[in-house]
Design a binder for these strands. Structure first.
Lengths: 221, 221
DNA sequence: CTAGGAAACGAACACCGTTCGTGTCAAACA
DNA sequence: TGTTTGACACGAACGGTGTTCGTTTCCTAG
């Protein structure tokens, strides 16, 4: 194709590139088409440019993902009403939900020590609430570690569940099937408790209650 | 190159392909060179064949990873000594360690309902121990959910820590640095508790104690 | 000894992340 | 005002990737 080099002056004033618009565009694509679709080329095309241009603002794809993670953590409400327990529960639940809303982002948070500025705000708030609950420094530090790990993991789970290809058979239905046809002698408990395993209920809230109860009742060392 | 088509008869009796040898070769490569090195081409080359040949036994790369995950779960000792609590703790810790030994494998376990035959054995044993502890069906079911989630997440963390490129500066040291230079007014707790946050200690064991204590003290619904 | 079917394979497709060198433009300086 | 400069944008390419297709090879069953 012989596209003559159009002066950018002539074009209808393209919005300038910046780290922020790249991150936001990335989140758009992620939400619309999933993690596999989030390629540097795709982001570049959405911004009407080539992939090379992105590398001025972003070191590599992982860097972009980390920035997207922190951006999506910006929307977590840091304070709420109630006792410190209720506030901690609400904060954790909100963070899980923020992570769960974008497929694959929570995985980025999982292996790493929180470092983004918004992630650190969440951690800071958590520590404050734990201290308000009367925990000593060591227990509070370990607790925030454990909570953050759980939050990231729960976020992964939630996003995996949210992002079910409507086209293919539900993952849960498949698993149910598999559990139903298991040899009862090799897996006696799984087989006999099949019903309870798949029964509905608010497991997320229960999990957070378990963690908080356990933290309160288990001083470090 | 004019390599004349050598009849396989003439070759020194290449070991035949099979799902098992592919999975084992995959684990070898993963342990030796990391997740990024685990490409279909690399596995094929290690087996002295082309990538296309693998697809007879393996549906796609993810399928291979899932098979590798279950294979590495085969080595988890399912029973030990002590009270049901101690046994549950040991089982969970052993599973975390098995997952943590192979970089990136735990991530595969994270989003999914356990379905592999070895994963199911672990789940079955956990359910048995929880029932031995006197929990009702619903609580035991939710507890195994929560424990499995934690185990997978802890495995990811451990493998991320194990797989530190010896070449580059330790991730922990970098985080310590970042925490040291944080604005104290924006992150008061993180800043003031910096010491406790990075202090050593057996956080993994504490985390499991927290979970088990919490489970015992938090009946479902 | 032959026919059939499963396994292995070579080549290719459509992408990917990332880098390099060149071009362009707006602000800073003379 | 004219010129320099340096940051940004971009086209093209490199060296890979997972996966598929059509063909060839080989073992086994008749």
């Amino acid at each position: 194709m012989s596209t003559p080099p159009i002066s950018r002056r002539a074009r209808p004033s393209k919005a300038p590139l910046s780290r922020d618009v790249i991150v936001r565009t990335g989140l758009d694509i992620l939400d619309r088409d999933g993690l596999d679709a989030l390629t540097m080329r795709r982001v570049a095309k959405a911004l009407d440019t080539g992939p090379a241009s992105l590398y001025v603002y972003v070191a590599h794809r992982e860097d972009l993902l980390a920035a997207m993670l922190d951006e999506s953590l910006a929307r977590v409400p840091l304070s709420s009403e109630g006792t410190w327990r209720e506030q901690l529960h609400a904060l954790a639940a909100a963070t899980v939900e923020a992570l769960g809303r974008h497929e694959g982002l929570a995985v980025v948070a999982l292996g790493a020590i929180p470092t983004g500025s918004n992630a650190l705000l969440v951690v800071d708030r958590m520590l404050a609430l734990l201290k308000e609950g009367g925990l000593d420094d060591t227990t509070a530090a370990w607790a925030v570690d454990l909570l953050y790990l759980h939050i990231a993991a729960a976020g992964v789970e939630q996003s995996a569940y949210n992002t079910q290809d409507a086209s293919e058979e539900s993952t849960i239905a498949k698993a149910k099937d598999r559990y139903a046809n298991l040899p009862g002698d090799r897996y006696p408990m799984v087989t006999s408790m099949r019903q309870a395993l798949f029964a509905p209920g608010d497991r997320d809230a229960w999990g957070l209650r378990v963690l908080i109860n356990g933290i309160i009742g288990t001083p470090a060392e």
